[in-house]
Design a binder for these strands. Structure first.
Lengths: 223, 223
DNA sequence: CAGCATCCGCTTTGATACTG
DNA sequence: CAGTATCAAAGCGGATGCTG
């Protein structure tokens, strides 16, 4: 059901986007043939993982969304991402990359170490599109798009930027790799994962209704 | 790395067999082309998931085993099995089945409700090969092969037999489907999962050194 | 026999063009 | 925007052959 080529990647795309249009999915899945996307969506619909929703008359676009059965795949997708993260280091530069792919793993990897402080916003500029971290109340929410008035901005190539965020690389060292940071250093420290955060078996089930959060890493096919 | 056809199934096979010979894998993966098995094993070795071990001179056979990185895939394989279990009900009878595929999920699904009682052995006769449940000290261990002197024997076609084991079907009702049980009914009750055992989010991390145990369900390609 | 490599017909995929 | 249609290339399943 989810073992065919592209299928789990389509699920991941829907997990981090929520309901999406056909062309959104196409953009998030660089390299997929359009007939395959159509075919996979049909199969996923038939097996009850995805539901297609013809939008209301004023809007002219159909939406694809995960059913509860589809959302139940989230922990699996997250674990696969975590398992595969070490392989990212060897991934060729030519691999496709979309910044929103970071949303799922970052949401689980980053923490809010000072939940009592007022919330802050950090903007990430990397890849094709900015990413916004909303930090506060002990949680970090990641969403695609630019922040309106960010408290800090971190920009640079994906790899070193990620290394800085996870604390594996100091800002000073990362500057040589093109990473720039504009803001209070304390804000970075607030969200960086502790040493356990990077360990293999860490799990931080916070709220009872917690969803949309992940460990680390992301993966993609050749191109 | 593990997204190609057959790859995760090879990993599952190694998870539940431990170190295995080429031909063991072939038997556990009905339908795989021999060139594909060879090719996948090579790729898995290259990516550090599997290690090949030329046996010591007296023995003439090579062994394939999972590296720690490969064993780290166990929770993912288990969760995929659990997620896919509901689809088993709709699986065509023509699907291939090997009884040892049940070992992983059964080990996690079944429980020992009376850990203080002396250990018992239940033999499962279904599919191509018997399966032995070793019950005792609060745990259920599943291994392929017949039991020497089983305290009970449950036999019949895979589907209804599984339904009886999980308590979804009464013995009386299952007899019509060809299920036979020879032994004390209390032994069955000792291992059957509680109502939470079948629920979506159940997790029973028992011993600290617990491994080789799983939730439920199993899946296979068409044939 | 275990552990592959080779060949062959068929299916699936990727790329592109086209359409309501 | 949301697909369908078409076609070449790659991957797969099955059979067979080879080698220690």
């Amino acid at each position: 059901v989810v073992g065919d080529r592209w299928t789990l990647l389509i699920v991941r795309e829907l997990l981090l986007r929520g309901p999406a249009r056909y062309s959104d999915l196409q953009h998030g899945l660089p390299g997929i043939a359009t007939n395959l996307l159509a075919s996979r969506l049909r199969e996923l619909e038939r097996s009850g993982v995805v539901s297609r929703e013809e939008a209301t008359p004023p809007v002219a676009t159909a939406l694809f969304r995960l059913t509860p059965r589809g959302e139940a795949l989230e922990p699996i997708v997250l674990q696969l991402g975590r398992w595969g993260a070490p392989f990212l280091a060897q991934a060729p530069q030519s691999d496709a990359f979309r910044s929103h792919w970071l949303a799922l793993p970052l949401g689980h990897l980053l923490q809010d170490h000072t939940p009592d402080r007022p919330g802050i916003t950090i903007e990430l500029r990397t890849g094709d599109q900015p990413l916004t971290l909303d930090v506060g109340a002990g949680a970090v929410h990641v969403r695609p798009g630019a922040a309106s008035r960010p408290d800090a901005v971190l920009s640079g190539p994906p790899r070193p930027l990620l290394a800085v965020l996870t604390g594996k690389l100091s800002l000073a060292a990362a500057e040589g790799a093109g990473v720039r940071y504009d803001g209070d250093r304390a804000l970075l420290l607030r969200v960086q994962p502790g040493p356990e955060g990077l360990a293999e078996g860490s799990r931080r089930g916070s709220g009872a209704t917690a969803r949309r959060r992940s460990p680390r890493g992301t993966r993609r096919r050749r191109s």
